[in-house]
Structures are given as C-alpha cells and as structure tokens.
Simulated assay, not measured.
Amino acid sequence: MPDRLPLFPLGSVLFPGLTMPLHVFEERYRQLISELLEPAEDAGEARRFGVVGIELGHEVGATAAHQLSDVGCMAEVRSVRRHDDGRYDLVVEGGSRFRVEEIDDPDDEHPYLRAATTLIPDELGDGAEEQAERVGRLFRVYCQRLTGIGLPTKPPADFPADPLPLSYAVSAALVLDQRDKQALLEADHAAARLELASTLMRRENRVLNALPTLPAGQLLRREINLN
C-alpha cells in the first residue's frame, strides 16, 4: 500500500546517498519542517520528506501537482538550524527513490503538498561492473577538461567504486541541467544510470574541450537550494 509523504518541490535533483543544503523560508514549508521535527514514536520516520523536481514553471498551490516529476528521492534530515524569524537551514541526505502515485491538494491542515508514494528498489542491472569502469575513466577525463578551462577539479578521494553508489555520486557531481539529472535519477538500475552518465560525459567532454580557458571560478560549487 502506498505511503503518504510530505513533498518538498525543488528545481534541483537529490540523489540517494548524497547531501544537499536547503533554505526553507516559505510559510507552508516552515510548517512542514516544524511538524517533521516534533517528537514522535519513530523519530527516523518523523524526519523524512520527499524531494521532487519541478518540471514546469513555479510550484504554486494545487497546480503544482501537474508540474512535478513522477520520481523523487527521500530526504533524511541530518542537521537543522532554526532562525529567529522561523526560517530553517537544513542539510538532508538522499535516501530511497520513490514514485509519486497520487498527489493530495493542500488544505488548511496541510498547506504543503503530500502524495501517495511507492519506493523504487535499487538494482545493479546487467553489466554494471563494466559500466562502472568506463564511467570512472570518463569522469577522470571530465575533471581534466574542467581543469583545462581554468576550473581545477579532481575526483574526490572517497569517490565510491561500487556500481550503485558510484552511479549516484557521478550523477550528482556532473554539471547538467535538471532534465538530464532527473533522467539519471529515474534510470531503471545502476547499469542503465552508468550508461547514461557515460553518454552525457562524452557529450560534456566534447563541449569542454572546445571551450577557451575561463577566468578562475567556482562552476562546481554547491548552491543552497531554496524552497
């Protein structure tokens, strides 16, 4: 039976095992976070909500149901800071992926979106190990291309080698538009995600190779996501 989950729509994609900073300022989402942080019998469950991508326009009331991606990622609260004016700064970590089955309209009790969701199991898929080796090579080239245009970058020392966590880590690390990121999140299994990441990296490597050297910058810096 689908679980009902509060939703936090974003113009960004959260991946399992990866962290994301959030700044919560809108009143209805302040209420969501406040309710999540209230003591409960199962504190773990109480500190989880769903991050789901906004595919079209801005998330406004009930019309948001027609603008959200079908697949999202569970967000588990790792740290929280409440400001005096009621805003929150959070760091969340991606948990399981889920599929949105049915979205409830906001009401007076729950002014934020909620949805019936089902968890999506993670599978390796055929050829995941071979795909992981290919992705590792392409990602090293990708980092070299970024360095070549004046953005010094190298693979993190703790980058995972196992196909499943690697598929998510590379997906999160690549500088791509939201549509590409969402496609990576929705891939059927690790092998398919790694294959898609390889295709995207080959494209990005060609583009980066054609660019002139840029002034020093922070293309890969982590931005704080706003609700």
Rank of each mutant, 00 (worst) to 15 (best):
R179T: 02
A161D: 12
A169E: 07
Q182Y: 04
L185V: 08
H189Y: 05
D162Q: 15
R202L: 12
A172D: 06
A157L: 12
P165H: 01
D177W: 04
A173H: 11
R193G: 00
D162W: 14
P165T: 00
M201A: 10
A157V: 13
A173N: 10
A192C: 06
A187C: 08
A191V: 14
D158S: 04
F159A: 15
S167I: 10
S198R: 12
A192Q: 07
A183L: 03
F159S: 14
R193S: 01
L196M: 12
L164N: 00
K181W: 01
T199W: 09
D188T: 10
E204A: 15
A173G: 10
R202Y: 10
S167Y: 13
A169N: 14
Q178V: 01
M201E: 04
L176I: 09
L164K: 07
A161I: 13
V175W: 02
S167W: 11
F159Q: 12
L194T: 05
L176N: 01
A183S: 11
L194F: 13
L194S: 02
D180C: 06
A161E: 15
L184P: 12
P165A: 00
R179E: 01
S171T: 07
P165G: 01
L164Y: 06
L196H: 15
L164W: 06
A187E: 08
T199I: 13
A190P: 09
D188W: 06
P165F: 02
D188G: 13
A197H: 08
L164Q: 04
R202T: 15
L174P: 09
L166G: 03
L194E: 03
T199A: 14
M201P: 13
A183Y: 00
L200Q: 08
F159C: 14
L184K: 08
H189M: 06
L196S: 09
P163G: 01
L164D: 02
L196C: 05
L174H: 11
A197Y: 07
E204D: 15
A183K: 06
E204V: 12
T199Y: 06
Q178L: 03
E204Y: 06
A173P: 04
Y168I: 01
L174D: 00
L196G: 04
V170I: 14
A191Q: 13
L185A: 05
S171C: 04
P160W: 00
D188H: 11
V170Y: 08
A190H: 11
D158E: 12
L184N: 05
A197T: 02
E186N: 13
P155H: 02
A187K: 10
L196T: 09
Y168S: 03
R202Q: 15
L185Y: 04
T199N: 09
D158G: 01
R193P: 08
A157E: 15
L166I: 02
T199R: 11
P163R: 05
R203L: 11
P165Q: 01
L166E: 00
Y168H: 10
K181S: 04
D177I: 12
A169Q: 09
L200Y: 05
D158N: 05
A172M: 03
L185R: 09
P155G: 01
L164T: 00
D162L: 14
L194G: 04
E195I: 07
L185F: 03
A190Y: 10
A161Q: 12
Y168L: 03
S167V: 10
D188A: 15
K154Y: 10
R179N: 00
R193C: 03
S167E: 03
P160R: 00
D188F: 05
A183W: 03
F159I: 11
P160M: 02
R202V: 15
A183E: 00
L166N: 02
L174S: 04
A183P: 11
